[in-house]
């Protein structure tokens, strides 16, 4: 890659964002810093409530940070938000369509809001209809569209003005496999043709399959960043998932944890509550697994399942946070306040 190609097109530095006041205040971002290279497909990974959406909404100029700097394609987003809006396409998590308009009418509206000339606008709409295979239904009212259709239309809206940077918030949540594959293919094409793509996701496999680079966000901060292969390789060792029975309870899992921790070559043991109290181990080499089997047998503990694999992004997350992504999701699931979140998203 050339120097120009690797120069960051999105730069966030020490960005803080707080919602609410006093005791009810929520610190959504706590000094988040991030650099997205030009022409890359960059994944923002983290559990719900980690600060992904807030980060993307700040980049899209929908929110102003409490402190920190934000630059998009060299433009200060706080000083000149209008120029940022011209350069950036934003596809929000919630697809907001005017149900009574057809998809084509929505695209026309979008084109006019971006001040495209009519001939240019209509030509671009025709191209995007072909690209995203929307021809069969684009003139129907958007209220009749399925989730996949709505998402494709939303993506077309984000691409209409040929942005330098496309920002997508959880672009494939709730989609069928076909729609997901179609969107993945378009995102790869975009990257290949020079557009910088930043997408947030809490799907590990999505980020693993798509992203050239990624950042993991937790508690409003970036806790790890780099190329997926590098991050995984940096962990070293193999991952082992151990179950002594199909569904263990916590005391048993803790007992087994204590036992296997003493086994030479075992570097880390974490109880995975989301997966029936299985144990996630990091082992230094293949021989450790045999040693582990012997030690469990000596302790008269059964082995229901024992699987060995190379490190995944979930392991990267585990290494950085001490818990799996799914555990993190479960931890925040009960503490979220949909009413407050709706209020935050409303102007």
């Amino acid at each position: 890659m050339t120097k120009a190609a690797t120069h960051p097109v999105l730069e966030l530095e020490n960005v803080c964002k707080r919602f609410g006041k006093g005791e009810k205040a929520v610190e959504a971002l706590q000094g988040l810093s991030l650099q997205v290279p030009r022409g890359s497909l960059f994944g923002l990974l983290g559990p719900n409530g980690a600060g992904k959406t807030t980060t993307l909404r700040i980049l899209a100029t929908l929110l102003a940070p409490c402190s920190g700097t934000v630059r998009v394609a060299g433009v200060d987003a706080l000083q000149d938000p209008r120029q940022v809006r011209e350069r950036l396409g934003y596809v929000a998590q919630e697809v907001a369509l005017d149900k009574i308009l057809s998809g084509r009418e929505l695209l026309q509206l979008q084109g006019d809001l971006y001040h495209l000339q009519r001939s240019q606008r209509d030509q671009r709409i025709t191209e995007l209809i072909d690209l995203l295979a929307m021809g069969d239904w684009i003139d129907r009212r958007s209220g009749t569209y399925s989730g996949g259709m709505r998402r494709r239309l939303d993506l077309a809206c984000g691409l209409l003005h040929r942005p330098e940077v496309l920002v997508l918030d959880e672009p494939t949540v709730g989609l069928d496999i076909e729609s997901r594959s179609a969107i993945w293919a378009v995102l790869r094409q975009l990257r290949d043709q020079g557009t910088t793509v930043l997408l947030s996701s809490h799907y590990l496999e999505e980020v693993d399959a798509l992203a050239d680079q990624l950042a993991i966000i937790e508690g409003g901060r970036v806790i790890a960043a780099g190329q997926p292969s590098e991050l995984k390789a940096a962990l070293g060792g193999d991952r082992v998932t151990l179950r002594v029975r199909e569904f263990s309870d916590e005391p048993e899992a803790l007992r087994v944890q204590q036992l296997v921790q003493s086994c030479p070559g075992v570097r880390q043991v974490v109880v995975n509550r989301a997966q029936g109290y299985s144990l996630n181990l990091v082992v230094e080499h293949d021989g450790v697994v045999e040693q582990l089997r012997r030690q469990l047998a000596e302790a008269a503990l059964p082995v229901f399942a024992l699987a060995q694999s190379r490190p995944s992004l979930d392991d990267v997350y585990l290494q950085a946070t001490g818990r799996t992504l799914m555990d993190a999701e479960l931890a925040v699931a009960g503490s979220r306040d949909p009413k407050a979140e709706r209020k935050q998203s409303m102007r």
Binding site: A60, T61, L62, R82, Q83, R85, E86, L88, Y90, A92, E94, A96, L97, D98, Q110, L113, Y114, H115, C157, S345, M346, R347
Partner: peptide, 16 residues
């Protein structure tokens, strides 16, 4: 438009 998020679609556009 505020409630259903459509206003946000308008606000991310570079309106004059």
């Amino acid at each position: 438009d505020r409630e259903f998020g459509f206003l946000n679609r308008l606000l991310v556009a570079p309106l004059r």
